[in-house]
Design a protein around this nucleic acid. Structure first.
Length: 270
DNA sequence: AGACTATAAAAGCTTG
DNA sequence: CAAGCTTTTATAGTCT
């Protein structure tokens, strides 16, 4: 049992309440970007979201335990973590006719006026996939990586049978898995990109160029991936930008591709 | 640049 | 008795 009222009244800056919600909300990481947010309940259950690293999760839980101890409580030490959900990202190598997918695939629905992705529940794994026309997608509803990958392969099987689609292959090697845990925790798997020194591209101008080339949404995604894969910087090398674009577009990082990128960057006086 | 659209999941309390 | 509330996260659209 946890005395939530005491925690809230004694440490109001750290533990907050929400209207119509019985849990206490604790922001674990302060200014850190990937800080876990903890939901504490009266029976001692804890939900952690927004953090994928088990060590950080245990540290955050330790912080909460310290606060409880400072109030004279004795929190249990044998904390068990269980993954209850996750958000996994994948990309296939071709645009997908999501309207055709929706009309020919049972268990799918699409309402482009509300959201630009087709939603499909994989009956085998129980995972829900949201697939976008550019081949990007997310897998929801499971923390089990094997099931997540299987769901993507099942989806791929449907897409390849869809008319004349020539989708090449699923890049599950590039799948991020971000899982939320009841009792809390999350996992994230990133593929590694070499960080090389070179001529820098200014962050602001790069953003503007990406908006011009791909539109605001894609630009946002590319910048976010740059921040995650390379690290948030004011300047990126063309090679780094190329690597991230390549990972998103599923194309090989040819010199021609990088030259094209460089020319367009020059045209935009980067 | 940010909010909102939609999705899954857990917790436990409130509302219809 | 089920549904909504709250939190997070990826994805990509529209709109302010």
């Amino acid at each position: 049992m946890v005395d939530l009222n005491r925690l809230r009244s004694e440490l109001p800056d750290k533990y907050s309440v929400r209207e119509n919600f019985p849990g206490l909300v604790y922001k674990g990481g302060g200014q850190r970007k990937a800080s876990g947010t903890v939901l504490l309940f009266s029976n001692g259950s804890i939900i952690i979201t927004g953090e994928d690293n088990n060590e950080i999760i245990m540290r955050i839980l330790g912080d909460v335990a310290s606060d409880l101890k400072s109030l004279g409580c004795q929190p249990r030490e044998d904390v068990g973590l269980r993954v209850v959900n996750s958000v996994a990202q994948f990309r296939i190598r071709r645009p997908v006719d999501i309207a055709l997918f929706a009309q020919s695939t049972p268990g799918s629905k699409l309402d482009r006026s509300r959201f630009p992705a087709v939603t499909w529940r994989d009956p085998q794994t129980g995972c829900t996939i949201r697939l976008f026309r550019n081949g990007a997608g997310v897998v929801l509803g499971s923390g089990d990586q094997a099931k997540i990958k299987q769901a993507v392969y099942n989806l791929y099987g449907i897409i390849t049978k869809l008319g004349t689609s020539q989708t090449k292959r699923v890049n599950t090697s590039r799948t991020h898995v971000i899982s939320a845990e009841g009792d809390g925790k999350e996992k994230k798997f990133y593929w590694v990109v070499n960080n090389q020194v070179g001529e820098g591209v200014d962050r602001t101008r790069l953003t503007e160029l990406l908006v011009r080339l791909f539109g605001p949404s894609i630009s946002k995604t590319v910048m976010r991936n740059l921040d995650i894969l390379i690290g948030e910087q004011q300047q990126y090398t063309l090679k780094e930008v190329g690597q991230v674009l390549v990972s998103l577009l599923g194309e090989a990082p040819t010199n021609a591709f990088l030259d094209r990128l460089r020319r367009q960057a020059d045209d935009y006086s980067l």
